[in-house]
């Protein structure tokens, strides 16, 4: 009942490629859920389905008990679903501050005055405040990933979807990111985090789902799942080959 997100029998294909094959799961309020799986498994597509960037072929997506599968991504964002993009999508000709301001004024619906204060806080929290006046197009890949997080936070989400934001970070940066995400988690925001950097993920999440070829092949406590033979074979096996 207190599920923030409730997905049932979700299906989506691109031609013959099934990116979501009868996926069903519930995410209770306040949970941090990790998603792993090989490249091309359909993880990002699942986020696209949840946020409305993609329309499902069949199945339902309920957010706070209401079916949102026909809503567009803007409506879902204003309802409280925000995401970061795996491939950063900055507003390149706008300043970093303005990028975040879009989330605060459009997504969270704050007034200009409130939004300015919130954006400065978020830029400080995500370590971007010194870049506030720079064009987002001038950021490094790492900073662009932080901007993805900052913008999503500015939209004041109840459900935050993070898509591989730890990729390419150094160990120190990774740890500070983990600390930031743990802060977000303790503020009560429900998190779903797709990540290849398993140790970063395990430092945050309460639960793990494994996706392969659009199917959920495991769901449960992170430790046992990481140790299961199935995951080692499918996930680690492919990862080692790559």
């Amino acid at each position: 009942m207190n599920a923030v997100l409730s997905i049932s029998s979700l299906c989506k294909s691109f031609g013959t490629v099934k990116v979501a094959d009868a996926i069903s799961f519930d995410v209770p309020m306040g949970q941090s859920l990790g998603i792993i799986g090989p490249n091309g498994a359909g993880k990002t597509s699942l986020f696209n389905l949840i946020t409305g960037t993609l329309r499902a072929d069949s199945g339902s997506i309920k957010y706070q008990g209401i079916d949102v599968s026909t809503n567009n991504s803007a409506t879902r964002c204003r309802a409280g679903i925000a995401r970061s993009f795996q491939i950063p999508q900055p507003f390149t000709a706008m300043s970093v501050f303005e990028n975040v301001l879009v989330g605060a004024t459009q997504g969270a619906g704050l007034t200009q005055r409130e939004a300015e204060t919130v954006c400065l806080e978020i830029l400080t929290q995500t370590g971007l405040v010194s870049r506030a006046n720079d064009l987002a197009g001038a950021l490094t890949l790492l900073e662009r990933k932080r901007l993805e997080l900052a913008r999503a936070l500015a939209a004041n989400p109840k459900l935050l979807l993070l898509d591989e934001i730890a990729g390419g970070l150094t160990e120190n940066e990774c740890q500070s990111l983990v600390a930031t995400i743990n802060d977000i988690k303790s503020s009560g925001i429900t998190i779903i985090w797709i990540e290849h950097i398993v140790h970063a993920l395990l430092a945050v999440v309460d639960r793990l789902i494994v996706i392969d070829f659009g199917q959920m092949i495991a769901d449960g406590k992170p430790k046992p799942i990481m140790n299961s033979r199935q995951v080692r074979e499918i996930y680690m096996g492919l990862d080692a080959d790559a």
Binding site: A74, C77, A93, V102, Q106, G107, R151
Partner: peptide, 14 residues
């Protein structure tokens, strides 16, 4: 102007 995909995901009614 800069990115429709991101704008939509941040609550902008395109």
């Amino acid at each position: 102007r800069d990115n429709e995909l991101a704008a939509g995901s941040l609550g902008v009614e395109i």
